[in-house]
Write a protein that binds this DNA or RNA. Structure first.
Length: 825
RNA sequence: GCGGAUAUGGUGGAAUUGGUAGACACGCUGGAUUUAGGUUCCAGUGGCUUUAGCUGUAAGAGUUCGAGUCUCUUUAUCCGCACCA
């Protein structure tokens, strides 16, 4: 290491000493800047595969480099895993802690539409800002592994993987009603629609029929649920994913269609139900207005005009209007009936928009006695309500609880589970149905009508259909265009680049057109953690060796908002690669945690429109990176929402100044028993609390320990060294500086983590609380692990206790060693 | 409605997992240093009350020698999903 860097430009330690002898306060600005430069020069955080060392892969979600710069939310997550990464590094692990940029996306494109500045230009500029900001916080990323997803060297592999999906038939084009944002002029995945509004711009989402590329994530639905057992994800992430996938077990049953007299039309209506056991309570059926059999059966209906009017009305409604509807509407399909296959009863059929076309079969059997929605509908249309489960009172509302079956023929007397089995068996034996599992999860809409995304590497040939471009032609780079405005008709801006669009078919050589839709911004982030393992590889997305060594991600932290988006998508993507044999493990992340949001001081969400956004640069500038880092960790429990406050920022700022000031009292001196005890207790506490992500209490341990040191007239060097090591994950600049001032020539970030000794951490004397009937009456000081009768004797000799015992006989004495004596009288 | 969480001083939050509630910090009060403000340092700080005591962890009940912690009931707040049959 170049010594003049360490010594603030001075040639020797002695020279430098003169400089800091006159400083009273900690100059965080020059100090932090100095060490950031030294770390960078020394490549202090660079990692390579090392078969002799155990690896640890810590990952945080890489940011989208928006024009606004780093948000205060980012550092909370990044610092947390930085603390963990730094500690693991000091514990001897080979730590991979990488950072990159998720650089494709709508904001850059919208900005381009507004200003004419090419997304590639603004994105690179933003990446520069982000990089500078991230470095200013002193995060220990291995910057040599940094990449961004809009780099052709990267998206070459995103395209390559898409071709694999295509090859295996998991990428398919389908014309379907998709979520369309009229403001962004782009199709959205279900996961991107929030309460009927576009997740990004807030405009109301409408339905639009479009040809879209889809990825068959539903094929992985079961494994995406079941494999959650193999990983250590926090509960709310697991349950949210399970909820989103929405697996339900039930049955599909066919109901014969008849005319009014009961003569079969030779057609069937299939329903999905989770409760086939309630079939004897079915009093009518409902099909979604868009259901294909409604149009197909039109000739049989007596009230066609009325039916058509309802269908048209439904089509005009957005999803939001449809679900906002409190009271149920619908129209009976007059002229036909359905025959209940369980009891032969003829029942009416309705269309109603409370039945969704996209779930199950788009048709239901209604059991108004035991389903509130059916009950509401039945009341409005004066339909019979037949109770088939014993219990409850159905005069006011549906009974949705459990009860044994009544009015149910062969199911009478059975419990729920038995009756479901029996009902399905009956359907199977009589050939009108079978068990069926359904999911709320839909396939992933993978096309976007945008410019700033990965081009989909397929061409359409009149003769050969959709053809993949040869792998040798990857990456298929984005053409340079100047008009980024999407069309109202829903075609991508890329359609205007006619030179690029027109090409030849790789199979037959005839004229062909390229796909002009691009991939969604979730594409690049679906596998980026694999690329970090081997980011400069131009032969493969990552070598087998690198993947075998580094994967899995040991600890992944990120926002809850990505639970049903990025996290689900990337697990799916990874499983697909696993099935193809490209990655060694079926799940990418061993452990997933999630940080709480940071709210503004008024408890509101921080947002540009509210004008309460805080720029991390300002905080770093006023308080320094270390104070900012420690503040982010001290603000509250990591997984909970926290409120920003300048006061507590002041608190940690003072703390850092205190640690700095202690330096003048450091001397060469042996440790007292008390010193040893305090030191080891602190080591144990901080170590344990970092591992458990209890960063706020880890910091308070450091503060308590520092207070102990502050009360000593002379501080033995070992105590101070230990403090520096323990504080280094939180405040690496300060730790590095003081380490150097102790005359050390190594980097503290490469030092080893102190080992705590639980025996030494124990105090020699303990304070034991003395209670009478569970009420505190005083405390006694006694040596640790003292004999029971000695403790009891000491307790009884307390004035307060003796007074009470003079009037009452002790019935029982409970002694908890080193903790409490409770005398029951 | 379903799923997940949370509830402790003026504030953010601790509590070795059933054993001295309020660690650590912020704020506040008083004092010292300072020309003053800020900084820094010392003391105090849950409530009520006369030293001694009583009371206190959203509300109510229960288990226990002992409950912030366990069980049941209720309430409030936050987050996610939501006509998913």
């Amino acid at each position: 290491m170049c010594q003049t860097d360490r010594y603030n430009g001075k040639s020797s330690f002695e020279e430098w000493k003169k400089e800091w002898a006159i400083e009273e306060r900690y100059n965080f600005k020059t100090t932090e800047h100095k060490w950031q430069k030294i770390w960078e020069k020394e490549k202090a955080y660079k990692v390579e595969i090392d078969a002799n060392k155990e690896k640890f892969y810590a990952l945080v979600e890489f940011p989208y480099p928006s024009g606004a710069g780093l948000h205060v939310g980012h550092p909370r997550s990044y610092t947390a895993l930085d603390v963990i990464a730094r500690k693991k590094r000091m514990e001897g692990f080979n730590v991979l802690y990488p950072m990159g940029f998720d650089a494709f996306g709508l904001p850059a494109e919208n900005y381009a539409v507004k200003t004419g500045i090419h997304p590639a230009v603004s994105t690179l500029k933003n990446i520069e800002t982000f990089t500078r900001q991230l470095k200013s916080i002193g995060l220990s990323f291995d910057w040599d592994r940094c990449f961004n997803t809009c780099d052709p060297e990267y998206y070459k592999w995103t395209q390559w993987m898409f071709l694999k999906f295509f090859e295996k038939g998991l990428a398919y084009k389908s014309k379907m009603a998709i979520n369309w944002c009229p403001s962004c002029k782009v199709g959205l995945a279900n996961e991107e629609v929030v309460n009927g509004h576009c997740e990004r711009c807030g405009a109301e989402v409408i339905r639009k029929d479009k040809e879209q590329w889809m990825l068959a994530i539903t094929k992985y639905a079961d494994r995406l649920i079941d494999d959650l057992d193999k990983v250590d994800f926090i509960e709310r992430v697991k349950s949210q994913q399970i909820n989103w996938i929405g697996r339900s077990h039930g049955a599909e049953l066919d109901f014969d269609l008849t005319d009014n007299s009961g003569t079969s039309l030779g057609k069937k209506l299939r329903v999905y139900t989770t409760r086939p056991d309630t079939a004897f309570g079915v009093t009518y059926m409902v099909v979604a207005p868009e259901h294909s059999s409604v149009a197909a059966l039109m000739e049989y209906f007596e009230n066609r005009t009325e039916i058509q009017a309802y269908i048209d009305e439904t089509a005009r409604k957005s999803d939001l209007q449809r679900t906002a509807n409190d009271s149920k509407t619908g129209v009976e399909l007059k002229g036909i009936k359905a025959k209940n296959p369980y009891n032969g009863q003829l029942i009416p059929i309705f269309i109603s928009d409370y039945v969704l076309t996209g779930y199950g079969t788009g048709a239901i059997m209604a059991v108004p006695a035991h389903d509130q929605r059916d009950y509401d509908f039945a009341k409005i249309f004066h339909l019979p309500i037949i109770q088939v489960l014993d219990g409850g009172d159905i005069s006011e509302k549906a009974f949705e609880g459990d009860g044994s079956h009544i009015n149910s023929g062969f199911l009478d007397g059975m419990s729920k589970d038995d009756a479901i089995k029996a009902a399905i068996n009956y359907a199977r034996q009589h050939g009108f149905g079978d068990a069926k599992t359904n999911y709320k999860l839909r396939d992933w809409v993978f096309s976007r009508q945008r410019y700033w995304g990965e081009p989909i590497p397929l061409v359409y040939c009149e003769h050969c259909g959709w053809q993949p471009i040869p792998e040798s032609e990857l990456p298929l780079t984005l053409p340079d265009i100047s008009d980024f405005q999407p069309d109202n008709d829903g075609s991508s801006p890329l359609a205007k680049a006619t030179d690029w669009v027109n090409t030849t078919c790789p199979k037959c050589g005839a004229h062909a057109r390229r796909e002009t839709d691009t991939m969604p911004n979730w594409a690049g982030s679906s596998w980026y953690f694999l690329r970090y393992c081997d980011p400069h590889n131009d032969k493969e997305f990552a070598s087998k060796e690198a993947l075998n060594y580094w994967m899995n991600v040991d600890w992944y932290n990120g926002g809850m908002e990505h639970t049903t988006l990025h996290l689900l998508y990337s697990r799916f993507w990874h499983k697909f690669l696993y099935d193809c044999g490209y990655v060694p493990t079926p799940e990418p992340y061993n452990k997933r945690t999630s940080h709480g949001m940071i709210l503004a001081e008024d408890g509101e969400k921080m947002s540009k429109s509210r004008g309460n956004v805080i720029n991390p640069d300002e905080v770093v500038d006023t308080y320094g990176a270390d104070a900012f880092r420690m503040y982010e960790m001290f603000i509250g429990p990591f997984e909970q929402t926290a409120m920003r406050s300048d006061e507590s920022l002041n608190g940690v700022y003072r703390f850092i100044g205190k640690v700095y000031a202690l330096f003048t009292k450091v001397v060469q001196k042996n440790l007292s028993t008390k010193d040893l005890q305090m030191m080891h207790a602190c080591i144990l506490e901080v170590s344990e609390r970092i591992d458990q992500m209890k960063f706020n209490t880890a910091v308070s341990s450091l503060m308590s320990y520092t207070n102990y040191l502050a009360n000593l007239s002379e501080i033995p060097e070992e105590l101070y060294e230990t403090l520096l090591k323990l504080i280094s994950p939180f405040a690496p600049h300060l730790a590095e500086e003081m380490w150097a001032r102790l005359g050390k020539t190594t980097l503290i970030v490469k030092e080893s983590w102190p080992r705590g000794d639980a025996e030494l951490a124990k105090e020699n004397t303990v304070t034991i609380a003395v209670q009478i009937n569970g009420k505190m009456r005083g405390t006694i000081e006694i040596e640790r692990d003292a004999a029971q009768d000695k403790v009891i004797a000491a307790a009884k000799s307390l004035d307060n206790v003796a007074k009470q015992l003079s009037v009452a006989e002790p019935k029982k004495v409970i002694v908890v060693p080193n903790r409490i004596v409770n005398i029951v009288v």
